[in-house]
Amino acid sequence: METILAQLLNGLDKGGAYALIALGLTLVFGTLGVVNFAHGALFMLGAFCAVAFRQFITYETVTLDPTKLSPWGAPLEIKTPMAQIWFGDFGAVLINWSVPISILLAIPVMLVIGIAMERGLIKHFYKRAHMDQILVTFGLAIVLQEVVKAIFGANPISQPMPVELRGSADIGAMLGLTPGMVTYPIWRLIYFLFSASIIGAVFAFLRLTTFGMVVRAGMADRETVGILGINIDRRFTIMFGLAAVVAGLAGVMYTPLVPPNYHLGMDFLVLSFVVVVVGGMGSLPGAVAAGFLLGILQSFASMTEIKAIIPGIDQIIIYLVAVVILLVRPRGLLGRRGVMET
């Protein structure tokens, strides 16, 4: 019981990341009909928003303190991060909470990047084959990750989480099981809650607002909505921006779990494509469900007991599931009938 619960929890945060990326991919595919291979790069760009923010506020100015001496006799160097010079103690708080705060930075940045990407490049590819879309977005992904590499270097840059949120929560004790059996890092719990609320927000946006209603109508029948005098293209562009924001936020919050480097996006992209396919191309609930499902499956497959039976299963479980799903039920778990079924 405890082990199962622990593995279930372990799968949740990764599943959350998969679900968020897959959600964005599906949004783009459902609205614009584009297969976006650069979506992983957006996840990576979001992660680097957090990195850039932190590097900016922790930019250190060095002053010499002539009264004190360092152990080797030189005047003691006092390094003060920029944020502390500007805001004093509040700066220290800012640095401690840099990752969550950089969400505020990531939202406008990712929105602008997403819209620029759609208007600048992808809109020229609506009429062309899916193959061309794959190729051009693949090229774009290379460009984006190389730009990041040129700016931030090739090494992973670790992002500390706020001090208050380090450590683990004893989930088992909360649920009345033996204390100490099922502990779970707080940040990963937060990541799960965060991704769940983002997913909820996106669904609420699509379900409850007029804008969302129009977008859903456009997904169902783009031409009719256009004939009714609604500028559906502009709304779809905004949806692309929104998908970029979702991917970016997933990236920002993921940085304390895995130090981001420039090919983080590519690593996640392959997996999230698999997630989209398993969930069903064009189905938003399918993407979310498959994301969590595969995340949990992966964590179960990494159990030593399972690995003892089938060695290496943890490495390939997701791909294996995808292969089986594609062959048995090509439209995916929750895919609509007739959407890219061949």
Partner: peptide
């Protein structure tokens, strides 16, 4: 297996198989 599908699904299937080979080559094999 892969050729039972075409278009983007074929691409993703081949990608999945290649990643499987790569991951296995790094771990169990």
């Amino acid at each position: 297996v892969s050729l039972r599908r075409s278009g983007i699904y074929f691409s993703i299937l081949t990608l999945a198989f290649a990643q499987m080979c790569y991951n296995l080559a790094y771990s169990v094999l």
